[in-house]
Computed example of a mutant assay.
Amino acid sequence: MATSLLASLFFTFWALLISPAISLTCSSQKFTKNQVYSNCLDLPSLASYLHFTYDPSNTTLSVAFISTPSKPGGWISWAINPNATGMAGSQALVVYKNSTTGVAVVHTFDISSYSSIVPKDLSFEVPDKTAETRSDGSLAIFATIKVPANLAAKGTINQVWQVGPGVGEGGMLEKHDFAAANLHSKGTLDLKNGQSSTNSGGDTTVKKKNIHGILNAVSWGILFPLGAMIARYIRSFESADPAWFYLHVFCQISAYAIGVAGWGTGLKLGSESSGITYSGHRYIGIALFVLATVQIFALFLRPKKDHKLRFYWDIYHHSFGYAILVLGIINVFKGFNILKPEHKWKSAYMIVIIAMGGISLLLEAITWIVVLKRKSRKSTKPYDGYNNAQSNQQPLAM
């Protein structure tokens, strides 16, 4: 019964539907200086908007980019990447408020790599650039750009946009989030037709992160705790022997196999993003892999119940098992904070964990009742009320 209930909770984790997002349209936006542009686009992520006019006669692009920083005091950015589709290598216009005056100011950044983001003049001419703070808390970038000849000949440019939480000393930009919306904030802008296209299939890095998160949530976050619950509680029922053992082994080996796959995708993601490091999440992941690998050997090193080493094996097996259980759940929540999926997914996982905890408390009570009753039936008494006086005087056998 408990196993089927846990299984149903597991499947509800995947049963949520994705709700449609609703956003404002750029056509309703007005500017304080009443600027007018030929085209406007509702960009597909980060609630951002682009207004632009392109003059092919002199290859000049006039843009107005509107977005809201991820936190008050943060920054927004719109960039052109002359040679690639991502942020690395892009030439960025960044707006944030001056910490002293509170006035929004445009700055230019050369993002040669994720680890090198420095204030610098752009590789193309920007004869005019201004910024403004809007009444709804958003910021706007206004710029006139001289499109390089090779891009003008193509008629398209690679655009990237982003929002961040704050600005440090010396104008150093604080890192933006790496949620799906942030990683999808790029596309191709068709200057002649006034259209923007993005990779509808999603960024491959985002897919890898989602796969990494799902594999690890299922393995370390659900299957390992489920296997531990089976070993602790189901085994107390005599009718469940030896089925509980095979269920326990199946859960733990499956969890280990899935966890290793998730660990491998994590290593791959780390190698592909050398400038992005999540030390705590990474070190716990390595510890989990090592502990789980050692734990798997417990299956092959398991002595018989009456063996003199069984006591020490139990200590090793149980201590490693509980360490994996605790670290696994902690790291799943760290992963949620990094990936930042829709809130419903974190809520669903919390419901599953709370439900498993509640079931564990219930089964703990039932297990103690079963064990105490079993001991009571097996206990012997020196005097049961029917022995004669002579037998009552005899000493207990040792």
Rank of each mutant, 00 (worst) to 15 (best):
P165R: 02
V167T: 00
V167W: 00
V167P: 00
G170S: 10
G170M: 08
G171W: 00
E174Y: 05
K175S: 08
H176G: 04
H176K: 07
D177W: 13
F178Y: 15
F178R: 14
F178K: 14
A179W: 05
A180K: 07
A181F: 06
H184K: 10
S185A: 10
K186C: 04
G187Q: 00
G187I: 00
G187Y: 01
G187K: 00
T188W: 02
L189R: 00
L191N: 02
K192P: 06
N193M: 06
N193T: 09
N193P: 03
G194V: 03
G194N: 06
Q195M: 11
Q195P: 06
S196C: 09
S196R: 03
S196I: 05
S197Q: 12
T198Y: 07
T198G: 11
T198R: 05
N199G: 12
N199P: 09
N199M: 13
N199S: 14
S200F: 10
S200W: 08
G201F: 14
G202M: 04
D203F: 10
D203V: 14
D203N: 15
T204R: 14
T205P: 04
K207M: 07
K207H: 13
K207E: 09
K207V: 08
K209S: 11
N210K: 12
N210M: 08
I211K: 06
I214S: 09
I214D: 08
